[in-house]
Simulated assay, not measured.
Amino acid sequence: MAMSMEEMLAKRPVDRAVVEGHKKRMLDEVRAYRLRELREASELTQVQLAGRLQVTQNRVSRIEHSDIDRTQVDTLRKYVEAIGGTLHIEVELGDERIQIA
Rank of each mutant, 00 (worst) to 15 (best):
R62M: 13
H65W: 04
P13F: 06
M5D: 06
T45L: 15
Y79R: 03
G85F: 07
D28R: 12
R52L: 00
L35T: 12
K11V: 12
R16L: 15
Q48M: 12
L76W: 02
Y33N: 12
N58I: 00
T56G: 04
G21F: 12
G85T: 06
D67H: 02
Q46P: 07
V55E: 03
A101V: 09
A50C: 04
D95Y: 04
L76R: 01
R36Q: 06
E81I: 05
E37K: 14
V91M: 09
V60W: 02
E81M: 01
K78G: 01
L44E: 11
M26P: 14
T71I: 03
S66D: 11
E7A: 14
R16N: 12
S42R: 15
R34Y: 10
E96S: 11
M3I: 10
K11F: 10
K78V: 03
K24Q: 13
A41R: 10
M8E: 10
S42K: 10
R34K: 14
L49R: 07
M26H: 13
E92L: 05
D69H: 08
L49Q: 14
E81D: 00
R52C: 02
V55H: 00
I100E: 08
S61V: 00
G85H: 08
L76Y: 04
I68G: 13
E92Q: 07
H22C: 14
Q99F: 00
R70Y: 00
T45D: 10
Y79C: 03
T56S: 06
Q57C: 03
I63L: 02
T71S: 06
M1A: 08
M26A: 14
A10L: 11
K78P: 05
R52I: 04
A10I: 08
I68D: 05
I89S: 06
L38H: 13
E92W: 03
Q99Y: 09
V73L: 07
R31M: 10
T71E: 04
E64M: 11
R62F: 08
A41S: 15
L35R: 14
R62A: 11
M8I: 08
G21R: 14
R39E: 01
R70K: 02
E6W: 10
H22F: 08
A32Q: 10
I63Y: 00
M26G: 11
R70V: 00
R12Y: 12
S66A: 12
E37G: 06
A17I: 12
T86E: 15
